[in-house]
Write a protein that binds this DNA or RNA. Structure first.
Lengths: 288, 288
DNA sequence: TAGCGGTGATACCGGTGGGGTATCAGTCCC
DNA sequence: GGGACTGATACCCCACCGGTATCACCGCTA
């Protein structure tokens, strides 16, 4: 009846992502025939057609698409078992905190310092990740807690505690006329001639179309602003990495950004509780 | 390095729950020796000691306890793959809504009627579960959405939308002096001589100690109240199942109860969106 | 239309390893 | 010290996973 092994899930995910048995088999370091067979067996056992093998290629059925999403979550959960178990077994368990490189640097520093001063504090490793990558790292057990920014980061499935809410600033090249302003509006900074918004890679690694430069890292972005090629709008506290060639101008009508600590729902531990309490104190002192 | 099959997780969970290789093997319908071997291999591959095999029995190490919690979540996620895939493949996919038997009956009826009247509404199956069982059913894919009650039900990992907030009433035997009152306080209904609060089974199936009667179902409870053996405090809308021998008295200082729809974070679908929208309308009309 | 490249499915085979039985090795208890 | 009980070890077998070889089907092209 049931039983479904993770091997079968991995096979299906590979095929569903590649939409090509040969390439999927290559990715799995195996030959194509056993992969075809395994997926057929999976479909028979589920009693569900997951893939349409038409002439000229493979495509997902509706059920296959549903299964792909669920299977990814399940595989993440299985990976999380290994990672969290290994960390729980470490001589000094510690915590892993993940955040976007460069974001909320000052706040993070205050949080870590305050937590380290607590009695019974454990070591906190900081794991820098790409934009929007925190959720994945929490789900697959690579991290215990993340510093995230609402409304930018997806928070579904995570418990959170707010730390601070703040306005946003535009980072513009010092030489640009906008740098003279004391405040700006969203309308003024969107679609500035000669300063197109930079484009970040999407989930599949490709870039959306548009006039702005393609970037992968914060430092690339910083340099591009310094070169007068783009501008960006970020939370005020992120200006820590501002260059001499940058000018920060408040954007008065930009949506407020809330910095939060997020953790996988239900994955509390004594160490995490300590960090959350520290964060709550920080939030209280910041708002007073 | 990685790899971990669900079979290994099932084996470990069985042993960790039974704390006895023989019984665990019996539960798994296999012999004890291969089970011992499999768990040993698992420990070697992880490089982590999960179980202490002391004289007189088996016990979990700290890492083993952590792994047990994670493994249960992962196995639920794998089960969810099967259930949700099968449902997605059904000719008419439908939605499965779960709730505690007897709770918010009127509200549920209004919600389902209103949703059924929507264009494009799919069939909604109602799955009645035991107290507090909704989270498990959502996690393992047995249900798509649940009707839950804050602060009673655990909401971690679930996205929610509020429907209605209401006060609580005490359900007391009509023959009891308290039935004459027009309002009560928490202090008055806790520890009433001769009317001890009923006890519900815990997660492991055993009952907490105390003077109250042991119950498993709402109808048992209803009968016990009618017999004058206990009283209970529940949301006002739950009085639908009130008997002639019951009297409902508002408890003025009891915490308010919020009825919500909850669903696994990130598991949105077109059908679910329709139901949530209906619930939002219901909430708006109820508050106005 | 015949050939060819490319795709997934089928046929068959060998080795690994998961699961079985039989037994051993401790421990506790009378 | 013997028996009951528990988990570990020894050994065996065969199911099944993965490999190679090949087929069947389609579309393109000359």
């Amino acid at each position: 009846m049931d039983g479904l092994e993770t091997r079968e899930l991995r096979y299906f995910v590979a095929v569903a992502e590649e939409l090509h048995f040969g390439r999927a088999a290559e990715r799995l370091n195996m030959a194509q025939p056993p992969l075809s067979r395994a997926v057929q067996q999976l479909e028979r056992r589920l009693g569900v057609v997951l893939l349409d093998r038409d002439r000229r290629g493979v495509s997902l059925t509706a059920a296959g698409a549903a299964m792909l999403a669920e299977a990814r979550l399940a595989l993440d959960a299985v990976d999380a078992v290994v990672r969290r178990t290994r960390r729980a077994a470490a001589p000094t368990p510690g915590l892993v905190l993940t955040t976007k490189a460069g974001a909320s640097h000052e706040l993070l520093k205050r949080l870590l310092d305050a937590y380290a001063a607590r009695p019974g504090a454990v070591e906190v490793d900081v794991l820098l990740c790409e934009i929007g990558g925190q959720g994945q790292l929490l789900r697959n057990g690579s991290a215990d807690v993340a510093l995230v920014h609402s409304p930018f980061d997806v928070l579904t499935g995570l418990d959170t505690v707010e730390i601070v809410t703040e306005g946003q600033v535009a980072i513009v090249p010092a030489a640009h006329p906008l740098a003279q302003r004391t405040s700006l509006t969203v309308a003024e900074v969107s679609d500035v001639p000669g300063l197109p918004i930079a484009r970040w890679p999407q989930h599949d690694g490709t870039y959306p179309p548009g006039p702005g430069p393609e970037v992968r890292t914060q430092s690339q972005l910083a340099q591009l602003v310094a070169l007068g090629r783009t501008l960006l709008v970020i939370p005020g506290s992120s200006r820590a990495w501002q260059w001499p060639e940058h000018v920060a101008v408040p954007v008065v009508d930009a949506p407020e950004v809330t910095t939060l600590l997020a953790w996988p729902a239900g994955a509390r531990s004594a160490a995490l509780d300590g960090l959350l309490e520290t964060a709550a104190h920080l939030a209280a002192s910041a708002s007073s």
